[in-house]
Amino acid sequence: MLAPQRRPRSSSTRSMTPSASRRARLYKALFENRTPRRGSGGIVGPQDWLLYPALLAVLATLVLATDLPLPFGLDLPEPVWPVALAFAWPLIRPSFIAPVLLGLMGLFLDYFWGAPLGFYVIGLMAVHAATLIIRSYIVGQDTWVVIGAYTLAVLLFFTLGVIMTTLDSGVVPRLISVFEQMLATWCLVVVVLILLERFLNSDVRFN
């Protein structure tokens, strides 16, 4: 009796270490196995890629503003969450709802953080408009190009913030603090990549 033949393992699986295999499975679970969330009728509605992320951004802002004393004198980070959305939304697709939502989120930040009214609205709109202009050059490019473009968008946002603060108060804000918040906001590039992965090609009608 012949012994049952084993299926030959693929070259990629054979060469993988266990940790690499775990990472691959994790990547697959995150980005490949998941089907895009569908609204009613199999269409990705505005609530999926606009409303829910906006609500999550507001919620994250509220949570991170909690006055929690951390050990070693550290504080919770304070990234500007809507910047990630202002960059990701025009890449997913141009929308009339997105700037309105961004304007509302900017007003929320103005009120919540005690900034002059319109301060964060202008910054978010600048990022949104700039990304919309270069959209065709970014979509479909390598991940590193997206990350580079997001870095420039964050730089644009905080440069505008420094200029407007200087105009408003006559004092240049401390650049080390600006850099700290810029770094925290840049770390949201993960959110941008997840949003693009989930929603960029989910609606074939637009493409």
């Binding site: 700037p99 009214l117 319109g118 408009a129």
Partner: peptide
């Protein structure tokens, strides 16, 4: 969308200039 963004920017700029913080 760009026209809408510009309109929101104008409103925000007016708010910013009118703020007396």
């Amino acid at each position: 969308v760009m026209i809408l963004v510009a309109a929101i920017c104008v409103v925000a700029a007016l708010l910013f200039l009118g703020d007396r913080r």
